[in-house]
């Protein structure tokens, strides 16, 4: 089976086509998970920029937000798989899909490795300008992912 035939086969998955409400249902949970993910993300990035909870240590704000960031991402991931499968051939033929996934991978490494290390580091040891830069990069990466994601089916 060629790659595109395999994509068509994914689209014909019995479960996904067993009701017209299944894919819209996954899309709704995907959207709400995105809200949770972006909320937890922006909380920390706004703290790094000095916009919220300025009297709280950065590490505390990050530790509070982290479970919601992970939960939001898991929701996005689990609902994203069937949403991809049902439109597989259109997705793989759309350059915006590759933009989304490429930046998504960079974003994951940046958020869960770089940003996590920076926010958990002793605040006196990191110059504030670096923390602000981390926040700007983090926001830019994930807003681009969300924008590209919405554009896939529109462009």
């Amino acid at each position: 089976m060629s790659f595109i035939e395999y994509m068509y086969a994914l689209e014909r998955t019995w479960f996904l086509n067993s009701s017209v409400y299944i894919i819209p249902g996954f899309n709704l949970v995907h959207l709400l998970s995105m809200g949770m993910f972006l909320g937890a993300l922006w909380m920390v990035d706004l703290r790094l920029l000095g916009g919220v909870l300025t009297h709280r240590p950065i590490a505390d704000v990050e530790r509070d937000a982290h479970p919601w960031l992970v939960a939001g991402f898991l929701g996005l991931f689990l609902t994203g798989i069937p949403a991809f499968m049902q439109t597989a051939s259109a997705q793989v033929n759309n350059p915006v899909f590759y933009t989304k996934m490429g930046i998504l991978l960079i974003g994951l490494v940046f958020t869960f490795v770089v940003r996590r290390k920076m926010t958990q580091a002793d605040e006196g040891r990191v110059r504030p300008i670096w923390l602000k830069l981390v926040a700007v990069v983090s926001i830019s990466l994930w807003v681009t992912v969300a924008t590209a994601a919405r554009l896939i089916m529109l462009l």
């Binding site: 959207l31 949770m36 993910f37 972006l38 909320g39 922006w42 807003v143 924008t147 919405r150």
Partner: peptide
């Protein structure tokens, strides 16, 4: 037009919802 308006609406709405949720 529609793609630009809908995308910016969905993204800003998602961030708004997230900050309310937090």
């Amino acid at each position: 037009g529609y793609a630009a308006m809908l995308t910016s609406h969905a993204v800003t709405m998602g961030i708004f919802f997230g900050l309310i949720l937090m």
